[in-house]
Amino acid sequence: MRFDWNWDFTLEILPRLLRAALNTLIAAGVGYALAMVLGLIFALALRSPWRLPRTLLREGLEFIRSTPLVVQIFFIFYVGPQIGITLSPWVAGMIAIGLHYSAYLAEVYRAGIEAVPRGQWEACRALNMSTRDSYFRIVLPQALPHAIPGMGNYLVGIFKDTPMLSVIGVTELMQAANSIGSETYRFLEPYTLVGVIFLALSLPTAGLVRLGERRLRSKLGL
């Protein structure tokens, strides 16, 4: 093989890759939604007054953060059947990616919550609010602006990690490029197009995140 870019072939495979790109976006969106919810639960649990569960959770999250996502994807996909739960590639992939990023988002939320001034907690106390009300009505709404830049970065991160789902056969962009490659023995166009589509999607998103961050900062008077 040598370098010969074929435009007809490019146009032929482009629709298929774009359809797969839609799946990539769905995977990133679902995974991120899961990570946001799980991350919040973990962040709140990390502030629980019981010491032992807190330590265990902290170590567990540290473990998730410092081991590779691909191995976790394989683990969840293959271990399920061993204990009698068969997960489809999509479900296993979403759980793996959601869990992985929830460990990162928990840290982002934690930093956000810690940035809320102590006086706010004391005011809740003085108004005789329950812990739940203090969190959901006073503290979390103020923690959110501090967490948004970090959350935006991980949204871009999760999007760039979705190609790893192709290893268990989730039909996203990378998987589509792989199967085009093995059907036609042409790798130049599919892999290059995947790169271009990723650039076209992630550069504007990263730009939007930066812009949103700046807006937010000026609004908060930072």
Binding site: P163, L199, S202
Partner: peptide, 19 residues
């Protein structure tokens, strides 16, 4: 802007086409 896996495949499968 692109993911590591895409770069890895590109360097391994596509660079040989450029010699």
């Amino acid at each position: 802007g692109t993911s590591l896996l895409v770069q890895l495949y590109w360097i391994f499968f596509v660079l040989p086409l450029f010699g």
